[in-house]
Write a protein that binds this DNA or RNA. Sequence first.
DNA 1: GTAAATTTGTTGCAAAAGCAACAAATTTAC
DNA 2: GTAAATTTGTTGCTTTTGCAACAAATTTAC
Lengths: 210, 210
Amino acid sequence: MNLLENEISIFFEEFCHTCKKVTTRSFKKNEIITTYIAKRKQLCLLTHGEADLIRYDFSGTKTIVEHYLSNNIFGEIFYNVTTNNELFVEAKTKCEVLFFDYDFIENKCTSNCSYHKKVMQTLPNLLLMQINSLNTRIEILSKRTIREKILTYFNILATKNITKTFALPFSLTDLADYLSVDRSAMMREIGYLRSDKIIEKNGNSITLLY
Amino acid sequence: MNLLENEISIFFEEFCHTCKKVTTRSFKKNEIITTYIAKRKQLCLLTHGEADLIRYDFSGTKTIVEHYLSNNIFGEIFYNVTTNNELFVEAKTKCEVLFFDYDFIENKCTSNCSYHKKVMQTLPNLLLMQINSLNTRIEILSKRTIREKILTYFNILATKNITKTFALPFSLTDLADYLSVDRSAMMREIGYLRSDKIIEKNGNSITLLY
DNA sequence: GTAAATTTGTTGCAAAAGCAACAAATTTAC
DNA sequence: GTAAATTTGTTGCTTTTGCAACAAATTTAC
């Protein structure tokens, strides 16, 4: 994975200005990076910062569909099915984003440019990483109770951090939107998990006691 | 999408025996195609039939994580995070499956074989299709009520079939495991949807009345 | 540095979902 | 063709979740 990260950063630093069809842009915290409406074949790479893919359904319910870190990809190209939902990506910190048009990736460059070649080499691994993280997301959401959703997510964070104590990357309000449950019900359940001595919580730091 | 399908079938029919590192196998209904335990870099392509990715968690709860049709891909390569869950792919009909080792795909062929080249050309589109379907899956699972889950899924089926009447690809028992809800609660909700004149149901045929 | 906005924490009550159990209908296996 | 297995449909009861509302703490904006 570190190898891949290195590969990604090198190829963007070295070749970014060779091909004209790639745009770089910076975003401040809370800015909207892109909105999913136009069915463009847009593919974006977050090179710096953190961002959320947010959905509001017809009744105004908010879901944090995904939470992106650097080297994660996102974009309209991943969404065929157009529902009557509002979907957009919001910067949670200062962000740097590369915008590709997937047609450019798909169709061979007229010139035999090395940048284009490198993109084709790296893309499958980026897509594979994205599939991995979507599968993890599905595992959380397919749990039937709030308690199980919380514990599944906390376990993933503990595994990633290789320690039983870790910081939540979300506010508790956002965590509820990410787990797709009512906030007050989630708070209650966290209370039960504490009194059952299954977790400890200090601010946004969580410790698993098992 | 039809173009892609054509591309896929052609390249497997034409080149399948050129490279030795690809295996084809047939499966009867209910046979286990693969089990996710060994952390192999296995990538599978379903060329014929229907199959389900099934998970049993520690307490025995079953989830149908995904439902595969021909030209869908699956495999251990998509699952980094090893939990204490049992994950396997089961043939729901007679199936034909191609097994790749991802290392073979990643590392260039020593010989400059055209089969290998074709795989590299097709793979990003297959991965993209997979991401699309996982995002659809997340949309269903992130709905907060059984009613919304049912209606979201039925809408997707109606859109795919381009008609308000369609056949369920699942038994109702399996549908509950796919929506990740209790079967009896789902049956009750379907009952309410019928009496509210939102859907009609005859056997496994559903009609949307809106 | 202070006012405004947001997040956290809590609770009572209502609605939804899960669990268990069972009969009827349908499908499967030989 | 029949017995066994599975699926469908239903219900009573319990547990979980959602909703609404509000106070306290914390963060943000100027």
